[in-house]
Nucleic acid binder design. Sequence first.
DNA 1: GCTCATGTTCCCCT
DNA 2: CAGGGGAACATGAG
Length: 252
Amino acid sequence: MPELPDVEGFRRFYDRHAAGKTVRALRGDASVMRNVTPQALGRALAGRRLGRARRHGKWLVCPANGPSLVLHFGMGGSLAWNPDAHPHDRLVLDLRPGVLVYRDMRKLGGIWLARDEAAVEALLGRLGPDWLDVDRDRFDKLLDRRRGALKALLMNQHAAAGLGNLTADESLWRARLDPRREVRSLDADERRRLYRAIRGVLRDSIPYGLVPGKRTWLTGNRERGLCPRCGAGLSRRRIGGRTTIFCPCEQS
DNA sequence: GCTCATGTTCCCCT
DNA sequence: CAGGGGAACATGAG
């Protein structure tokens, strides 16, 4: 699941349950640790008090009074509080009273340890601005410098961070723009529509802490394959290595 | 057995 | 250097 709205949900979940608590011990799966062993992570975090998390794009940074735990959720990662043990538990933080668990079945996500703020910057520094921080002026500058297909730009985390396959498709559908359109070919009205659509999709998703997949949304109709607005059969194409859904009638 | 899955990175082309 | 295409990573579900 994890795109910007999902990770925003994880951030709130983390702050509700873990922030302010002290790490007593931890147990981790070495195969999802990207720059640290479970033992070294334990040594770095044990006894430290967790602060509030912050999100940049699809990344969650969890400061621990010096070092930070950095989480990425891949395609299916999630957080849980005091759950029953599960085979896909990759990190179990004992925060007595309570246990925070990071789960990731496919192991496409990962866990990093950043020794200090400079190390966080080194990890996330190449990402573009978080989409929530992209104002209209920045959006125009983003488009001015890019070529290629619209969908690819929205998915490119180095351009701006946080949109994924679902939120990109939903935004293009709201804006009634063909995902294959050249970025440079947009006129002023199309740019305005796209910007408003992206903001709207994020604004409407964030309260849920996920992309809600309502029936009035494109992404709530992937299975049925019909456009929620006009009823036409949806098209399915491979763009930028991902399946892209769009309405052939309205998005052209 | 097959295809597909809300992500990122790396490699090879153009 | 920018962008596109594909493979790889790992583990399912249908």
